[in-house]
Design a protein around this nucleic acid. Structure first.
Lengths: 328, 328
DNA sequence: CGCCACTATGACAACGTTGTCTTCCAGCGG
DNA sequence: CCGCTGGAAGACAACGTTGTCATAGTGGCG
């Protein structure tokens, strides 16, 4: 800036006035300054500006499990849209389902003085956030709640959705329904399991823990589960996939099976409708999830001091065929 | 920091020494300072630190068309991995295929003094980048080249891949091959069209521009194209989809068609192998694309001054069935 | 002609850090 | 007892901005 000032023959303050479109600058002077800016390729340093003004940095942080997972990237996009509408930029990070990494990312974002943080938490302990939140950084949890603190949270109806899935399969005659989900450490997986139990109870289906497999979904883990649950003397006739990753691995494992069970996936996913048979899903609006969380965050950023809110978004069953197969 | 200093009964500089793990601080003093930091929830302001030290901000910018598109989110993830390994954070932004928005994002990132920028350019004019690059912000273009400046670029072999697709279809007897791609303004779409022409020439297929449709892919635009190209007296017997978005819309448009053409998609996509028939694709390693670009960027960040590089990554045909259908 | 109001500009401090230099004090050898 | 060394800590300036206040010039009005 001082280079610009020297070149334009004005003081540094006048340059500041010009870049900030302040009035009270003579048009000729402004012209000279602009020319100097152009010539030197000057660009004001936002970091210094924010420091001096004590203003917000105009950034928010978003932490998800994996920005490459279509579910989270859709979330990311929805958040970005809202952020853009509020003139903010988004710092993203993948926690890789590791609570240490989550913590590291959050604290790093706080050091950067983001205006707020959206987090799909990996861990169950969030005490480390208390000083940050007290210091004025709003935090909104999405898809999963905070472990041990009260904070704004936006979730989907995990239990209700899974209950509905069980009911749907029961209606089509299934009595042996398998439940394949991610590790029970993950909130959504645990809740969906609860919904699964509840659904069994409500539909008079005896809950059989041998039909439940909860592990980080990989081709191997899901393949193993499929072999175990769907063969033998008393196999499952239907499967509920606890999330989109499980569903994809499940589909691949079933691709060459001689007998395919009925199937319902929690989470919709691209092309589910074009498979053969099309995959029935418990769908929810991922964009709405991101939007709701981001809007809540910006309300906080703008000073909303009301009590922490908990929002639960609805889910709905989309019957496409795979869940309507009768047991054989 | 001065609050911490006051509480610990030391000078502000000593606090600085403690938070920076500098030696020459008495253990007892350090203890007192740490306690004060804990008690006050102090977190050092990275912005101020970077300003004072004149160091880099530890962030890079990534601009893609749409962070929600699985192709770009995979790219994003690969970039994030490299960035993390270099201790950097990633600011992301979606240009929405709008060159003004691209420019805005780039300049905003520059104002924030990112250490470097990765961009999948939307526009063809990048003169605005010259001052920024001269000022020392490295920029690497990925998936598409810069319009009118020389800069590091990482691409995939668009032409070669499409030539291969045509050859494959020709080998299975197709002579009327349609080419459906995104708007010709987009570099990759244009290159793939060139590959398509070249493939036709090499295989003795007369190039028929009526079989080429290049428009932003939506359900409508692709649906229209399908109706036009695949019905009538002399329909196409095979289709090449110019990218993953076109492919998805194409599949949906073909879902209920009585006669399905052979099909090959440029870009692999999730579940392509599980459709019926499985979709043959021109695959390339999206993660490798992001990795290569990010590694090149960090080489520049660390002072590599060599001439701008242009990297072209290979592609390969994955035959799964949809491209091996004989013409009817 | 003197005073005022107003416009255009600049000097200076401060934002939260950290690098440099200085100060203070204890311990030690001569 | 003196001077020297080295460890511990502080004073101060500076990073690139901008808010506040001061200053210089200009034109109008009584």
């Amino acid at each position: 800036m001082s280079d610009v000032a020297r070149l334009a023959g004005v003081s540094i303050k006048t340059v500041s006035r010009v870049v900030n479109d302040e009035p009270a600058v003579h048009p000729d002077t402004a012209e000279r300054v602009m020319a100097a800016i152009e010539q030197l390729g000057f660009r004001r340093n936002l970091g210094a500006r924010n420091l001096r003004r004590g203003s917000t940095t105009g950034t928010i942080g978003l932490i998800v499990e994996d920005v490459g997972n279509p579910f989270y990237s859709e979330l990311n996009r929805a958040v970005e849209r809202i952020a853009t509408s509020f003139g903010r930029q988004v710092l993203t990070g993948s926690s890789e389902e590791n609570s240490d990494r989550e913590r590291e990312l959050v604290l790093e974002f706080c050091s950067r003085r983001v205006d707020g943080i959206l987090v799909v938490p990996a861990g169950m302990q969030h005490g480390y956030l208390v000083p940050e939140m007290r210091a004025g950084t709003p935090v909104v949890f999405l898809d999963r709640p905070a472990g041990d603190i009260v904070a704004d949270t936006v979730l989907v109806d995990n239990i209700g959705g899974t209950v509905e899935a069980v009911a749907h399969l029961a209606k089509h005659g299934h009595r042996r329904i398998a439940f394949l989900a991610d590790s029970p450490d993950i909130f959504t997986a645990g809740e969906r399991l609860r919904g699964f139990r509840e659904g069994c109870v409500r539909n008079g289906i005896p809950f059989d823990e041998h039909l439940v497999v909860m592990r980080t979904p990989t081709a191997e883990s899901v393949g193993d589960a499929v072999r175990r649950l769907l063969t033998g003397p008393n196999p499952a006739t239907a499967v509920i996939a606890g999330n989109n990753r499980v569903a994809v691995h499940l589909l691949r494992a079933l691709a060459h099976a001689e007998r395919r069970p009925a199937m319902i996936s929690f989470d919709d996913f691209e092309l589910a409708d074009l498979l053969d048979p099309p995959v029935s899903v418990i769908a929810h609006d991922v964009s709405a999830l991101g939007r709701a969380a981001a809007e809540l965050l910006f309300a906080r950023v703008q000073g909303d001091q009301s009590a922490p809110r908990k929002v639960v978004l609805p889910v709905h069953l989309v019957a496409r065929g795979s869940g309507e197969v009768a047991p054989s």
